[in-house]
Every structure is written in C-alpha cells, then in structure tokens.
C-alpha cells in the first residue's frame, strides 16, 4: 500500500495533515523529506510529537530518494511531505518515482505572488513546477480532502508554460 499522499507544505506536519488527511487516509508513517529539519534533533522530535499515533520519520531529500522505492512496498499507508517545490523537484530528480504532488500550503513570503489563499509562488517556485510538469508529474492544489483538487496550471498558467 504505502504511498497515498505526496504533499508540498511549508508547515510540514500540522493540523490539515494530521487531522484532515490523516483521518481520511489513515497513514501508518509520515515521512518528512527536509534537509533543515533532518539536521536538527530538536526539530525532529517536535515533528514527531505533532502526530503522536503515527511513525514520523524526518530525513534529508537524498535519504528519502534512496528509500522511496522500498517504502512503496511496505505495509500500511504512508505520507510524504516536502517543504517546497524545489525539494519536490530535487526528490524526483534524485530518483523518487512520484506521479503527483498535492500542493497544500505555500504561504506568502516577500516576492511571492498569490495563486490562491494558501499558495504563493515566485519565479523559482514556477521553474520547479515546470520541471515537475515536464516530467509528467501532476501538481494538484488542494489543502484538505473535502476541497476540490485543481491543477496548478489551471490556477497559474505561468507554472506550466514552457
């Protein structure tokens, strides 16, 4: 069973992940692929406490790429979370076979333009999005399971333009 959700979310593990997606898909494991979080023991512990009934594993993007295929065959459902589109691209380019990413939260920062209430992008984000789309990977904007999933290209055509 394993992978049931690959999500891009700058909050990493938080309420929408644990309560909404967690209740919907019942993951046994949540993998956070983030170099900064993986390098910080305190941060790893904090993320683990956020989802107390789930096995939380915080690894680097390179480590995630190395174990992604093996995890796909593991029993039980698993979530994959990366912080931004650049990490998503790096993970795929390092060999992780991912068909689609859920874009669940890329919040405002200076220089980023609004796509919807919870997705803001800059040129670097769009370049990463284009690289993923060019590989045939779907990018669907959807914060919670009850919301409609919308292709990023429909909301932000510049993300798909070659």
């Amino acid at each position: 069973m394993s992978w049931v959700l690959a999500r891009v979310d700058d909050r990493l593990i938080h309420g929408q992940v644990v309560v909404a997606w967690g209740r919907h898909l019942r993951p046994k494991r949540i993998w956070v692929a983030d170099d900064a979080a993986a390098a910080n023991a305190w941060e790893r512990d904090l993320l683990a406490t956020a989802a107390p009934e789930v096995d939380v594993r915080v690894v680097t993007v390179a480590e995630m790429a190395a174990v992604h295929a093996g995890e796909a065959a593991a029993p039980g459902a698993a979530f994959l979370i990366v912080r931004n589109l650049e990490s998503a691209r790096a993970l795929v380019e390092a060999g992780a076979a991912i068909a689609a990413f859920n874009l669940g939260g890329l919040h405002y920062a200076p220089g980023k333009a609004k796509v919807n209430e919870y997705v803001y992008l800059d040129d670097a984000d769009r370049a990463a999005a284009r690289a993923l789309i060019a590989r045939g990977i779907a990018l669907d904007v959807q914060d919670v399971p009850q919301a409609r999933a919308t292709p990023l290209a429909a909301l932000d055509p510049a993300s798909a333009r070659a």
């Binding site: 909050r11 593990i13 938080h14 309420g15 644990v18 309560v19 305190w42 993320l47 956020a50 107390p52």
Partner: peptide, 16 residues
Amino acid sequence: DFWGGSCHICGVAAAR
C-alpha cells in the same frame, strides 16, 4: 486550540 496544529507547533518552537 489543538495538539499537532500549526499554532501548537509554532508555539512550542517560539517558546524554545
């Protein structure tokens, strides 16, 4: 409001 939400997580991080 609730354990595991961003308010809790960021509160813990800010209190560090």
